[in-house]
Design a protein around this nucleic acid. Structure first.
Lengths: 154, 154
DNA sequence: GCCAGATGGTTGCAATCGCAACTATCCTGA
DNA sequence: TCAGGATAGTTGCGATTGCAACCATCTGGC
């Protein structure tokens, strides 16, 4: 019934698993060592910096970052303590809290983003030819749409 | 100095990040829902099943699974409680504890492995053409060797 | 033979995360 | 208008994990 994985498939899968954890933890370690920020915190700042007015609703932010509501609440607590983000009640919906990137948060992000991009390039992009890059993108798109169709969320 | 990512590179990187967490959590959810075991525990059983005599030193097991010593200690506690694994002092080195797959552990693994393989195929392999599969394997090998050369461990 | 340093494993502690429960607010239908 | 359900965010709790400290054991140099 269930076909086992052949050697090629197994190599791709094992490689994927190893690369996933390896690249992630390498970037994490560099970011923490050089700038004292986790990739989780970095992700919040980066996402906010791309949003209109540098602000987002908590729930949208949580969905984008694949984080649970409680997880985001506490992650934001840390960023607020460091004055990189502030909370702001929404004028339109009083249930909603907006996470807003501060000027300090933006300048901090602009300072560390090059290091992160450099890490992505060094650990990931630089190992791929332009053709492989295109192939990867399309393969990932296909996998992503498969994930979305099976499980509605997350 | 640092080149920013162009659209193609950004698409590949974002796809990689999303697929990493998406595929991992989809497999995790299926494994937990259907058989009440985490991918972490599954990894221990799978690795032990491939070892000589179904036993491995704790430190080797931890290195293979990218787990800290303390993490493995506690993970093993859980598996021991479920009689899937037993601890056995090494005769050669009295510092060493061997993790040994029990008969019950082996039969449990053989029962759930097909589901896991099926999940890998469904969420990952099935979206890739044979050519893409080969490309991926070689790209991953390159990335892995890059990781190893930069950071000696983990 | 013996001491210093390396290695293997466990435990205390703190950080992180998700789920469930809870409150507050919004929205829909009658 | 207003009741019931949906949605947003926070908090309590338990589970997982890594780091540092610790103890036991091994190994190499003398």
């Amino acid at each position: 019934m269930t076909k086992w994985l052949d050697n090629e498939e197994m190599a791709a899968w094992r490689g994927f698993v190893n690369v996933s954890s390896g690249v992630t933890s390498a970037l994490e370690a560099e970011l923490v060592a050089h700038h004292g920020i986790t990739t989780g915190d970095y992700g919040v700042l980066a996402r906010l910096s791309e949003a209109d007015d540098s602000k987002m609703r908590m729930c949208d932010l949580a969905a984008d970052l694949h984080l649970s509501p409680s997880g985001l609440t506490r992650r934001l607590d840390g960023l607020v303590r460091r004055n990189l983000v502030v909370r702001e009640p929404s004028a339109e919906d009083r249930r909603v809290m907006l996470a807003v990137l501060t000027a300090e948060g933006r300048s901090f992000l602009e300072q560390i983003a090059p290091l992160h991009v450099d890490g992505v390039r060094r650990h990931f992009i630089s190992h791929l030819s332009p053709t492989q890059l295109r192939n990867l993108s399309s393969a990932f798109r296909s996998i992503e749409s498969g994930l979305r169709s099976i499980a509605g969320r997350n």
